[in-house]
Design a protein around this nucleic acid. Structure first.
Length: 626
RNA sequence: GCCCUCGUAGCUCAGUUGGAUAGAGCAACGGAUUUCUAAUCCGUCGGUCGCAGGUUCGAAUCCUGCCGGGGGCGCCA
């Protein structure tokens, strides 16, 4: 369990678990140690607050009737000071034991949660967690396809950090190799011809140059063959011959440029550096606007590992990990220890070139041997699943994944995600079939958000509505992505993510804003802050529901870390916002008096704190009013 | 051909790692407003959990086989 649990003293599930473990020990000594009493929030609030599901499983092991086992446990358990005594009606169905908490105990648990950590105990064994997120390519405009990795990766990184682990973010840039050399070669040529000015170079120009470079290096040998075979005439043949010749020349130039880059030849390297700077500037701007915590210092791309590839491959050959096959070098992984993968991993081509698998293996070696990672999380497209399994397998087989500090293999996991689809169910594109620039997408979201903000609050100054729209827009776009099970594709829809009804980012912000509003008004009315120290209200059904939901926060966070699924936290925060909405509707705060009012103020305060904390873990910006 | 992945209400999606009568949101319909921000709340309608077997007290969840969508399979990254 990588996720933290609530500190044992205040979580009702922990308290109940201990009581039931004692009861099981007393009633069934033969059950042995380490029995999980399976305490869960009760599915039906009318039956209880929590339920114990252990009787059925235990009965099977002991060869007894489930209801008899449940009865024995119920008779043996001591719930004094925690929950109401169990009556006969508490045992239901095949052997569920329904538990009703004492109001005082519930209020006390909640009050205990109102500490600096919101009940989230720092990890007992902090790990060093490397999170691989993003991975943009040089000289290419960022588009929708680049959205999910940083959003999901950042949310996962923030979750681990929140739980007390040390997080190291890594932006695995596609900044090396022949494709980059092709662009660089083209830019060198264009600049020499005075056709471009590197000082004013934009990413759009780079994007165009990238495509042009791809085109001019691509030899149409297949076309030439076809022309010859079908005898389409000397003119067509001559044209294609010229194309192939030109492409071959461009290709050779790119290869020379790659060699120059590897040697860090000053002129060529400077151009490459410029390409990198222009690309990264835009990338960092997008990250900043998205509130994704990735900066230049997290960059460690292909160029970073370029000098290590020969050493890695040499090591693998020397130690017999890699073997030759058809002139290339491969690593066999068809063994359960390495993942039981039929397809071998290719790490060096017949022509001596390295592949992206080679770089990824070098990256794992670096991350574990030098950064001392205990865990590496890859937030990468689901299509890379096989590739990553292979890379993990090679690293294990080579011993690169063995952490030198602990001697244990780093836990390597792929947080795979699906595609962003348009409303037609096909990959998200513009009407003309172009991919949508990420910066355009963000701007359109904010513009749409501002339109609605203005409709709601026409009197707001322009600056204020723009500021609110910015947060609402980012909340909308991020929540829409994070709230889906990451492994599935999802349909991108401005209308749905910005419709401020239902399961959306703006809805959560609205819930937060309402908690703030009440506390602001209380302060303005001179209520003081003595309510900070009174027990939270848990008498009304809506209060109680809110209290029970608040207590689930630490478990929700832990679930995200265990499953690498931020949507679990989204689901939780949405439920919390919902029960707060009901509470808000049914339990007047400022119109109440005395202990009732104070207890409700404290519930608002706690709800606000949990929403604030949870939204921050998701990387969603906060608002005081909207 | 082999491997991975998805299939739940008209639409978009959850389902706490095998628990009780499968839940939300949207859409549709009805209700609540002297607003602690109605960007809200309450209710009604809506299901062969792709299909068929199997495992057991109990399956949307696990195992097998099909059907359908998407993706991947040694010299691109």
């Amino acid at each position: 369990m990588i996720g933290a649990s609530m500190s044992a003293t205040n979580d009702p599930i922990e308290i109940l678990s201990r009581r039931f473990i004692d009861a099981i020990r007393g009633a069934f000594p033969e059950a042995g140690e380490g029995v999980d009493p399976l305490i869960r929030p009760c599915g039906q609030p009318e039956l209880g607050d929590f339920q114990c599901n252990v009787a059925m499983a235990l009965a099977k092991r002991l060869g007894k009737k489930p209801r008899d086992v449940a009865g024995a446990i119920a008779a043996a358990v001591d719930l004094s000071g925690v929950a109401h005594p169990l009556t006969e009606g508490a045992i239901a169905g095949p052997g569920f034991i329904n538990i009703r908490l004492l109001g005082d105990a519930l209020a006390a648990s909640l009050a205990a949660m109102d500490d600096a950590h919101l009940g989230v105990a720092p990890a007992a064994q902090p790990e060093r967690v490397v999170v691989d997120l993003m991975g943009v390519n040089l000289a290419k405009q960022m588009h929708v396809g680049h959205l999910r990795s940083p959003l999901i990766g950042d949310a996962i990184a923030r979750t681990f950090a929140r739980l007390g682990h040390t997080v190291i973010r890594q932006n695995h840039l596609g900044d090396w190799g022949l494709p980059i050399a092709m662009v660089t070669a083209r830019l060198v040529r264009l600049e020499a011809a005075g056709k471009i000015d590197l000082n004013t170079l934009t990413l759009d120009q780079l994007d165009e140059a990238y495509r042009a470079a791809q085109m001019e290096c691509q030899r149409d040998t297949a076309g030439l063959e076809a022309v010859r075979r079908f005898g389409l005439g000397p003119k067509a043949e001559a044209e294609l011959e010229a194309q192939v010749e030109g492409a071959t020349e461009a290709f050779m130039e790119a290869r020379r440029t790659l060699v120059a880059l590897q040697a860090k030849e000053p002129k060529t390297y400077a151009v490459w550096q410029r390409v990198r700077d222009v690309t990264m500037r835009v990338c960092m701007d997008v990250c900043a606007r998205l509130h994704v915590d990735v900066t230049d210092e997290h960059s460690a791309g292909e160029s970073f590992y370029a000098d290590e590839l020969a050493g890695v491959v040499g090591d693998l050959v020397t130690r017999g990990i890699a073997e030759e096959s058809d002139g290339a070098l491969i690593v066999r992984l068809d063994d359960p220890r390495w993942g039981d993968i039929e397809t071998p991993c290719l790490i060096r081509k017949r022509d001596g070139g390295y592949l992206y698998a080679t770089t990824d293996v070098a990256a794992i070696r670096h991350r574990v041997q030098r950064l001392h990672a205990d865990r590496i999380v890859y937030c990468i497209d689901a299509r890379q699943a096989l590739h990553l399994r292979q890379v993990f397998g090679v690293s294990l087989k080579a011993g690169y994944a063995a952490n030198p500090m602990t001697g244990r293999d780093a836990v390597m996991r792929h947080a795979a995600f699906g595609s962003v689809l348009g409303e037609d169910g096909r990959p998200f594109k513009t009407r003309s079939g172009e991919s949508v620039r990420l910066s355009d997408l963000l701007e359109e979201t904010v513009v749409r958000a501002q339109k609605t903000v203005k409709e709601r609050s026409p009197d707001q100054p322009e600056e204020e509505s723009r500021r609110i729209a910015e947060a609402v827009g980012m909340a909308a776009i991020k929540y829409a992505d994070l709230s889906n099970d990451r492994v599935k594709d999802y349909v991108f829809s401005f209308d749905r993510m910005l419709a401020f009804e239902g399961n959306t980012g703006p809805y959560l912000l609205y819930a937060l804003v309402r908690t703030r509003s009440i506390l602001r008004k209380a302060a303005a009315a001179g209520v003081g802050d003595s309510w900070r120290r009174v027990p939270p209200g848990v008498n009304e059904p809506a209060e109680k529901m809110l209290a029970l939901t608040l207590l689930r926060y630490p478990a929700a966070l832990a679930g995200v870390a265990d499953a690498l699924e931020p949507h679990r936290l989204c689901q939780y925060l949405f439920e919390l916002s919902g029960v707060f909405g009901t509470f808000f509707d049914q339990c007047p705060v400022l119109q109440s008096e005395g202990a009732v009012r104070d207890g409700r103020l404290r519930l608002c305060w706690l709800t606000g704190r949990v929403l604030e904390d949870g939204l921050t873990v998701l990387g969603i910006p906060l608002l005081e009013r909207m």
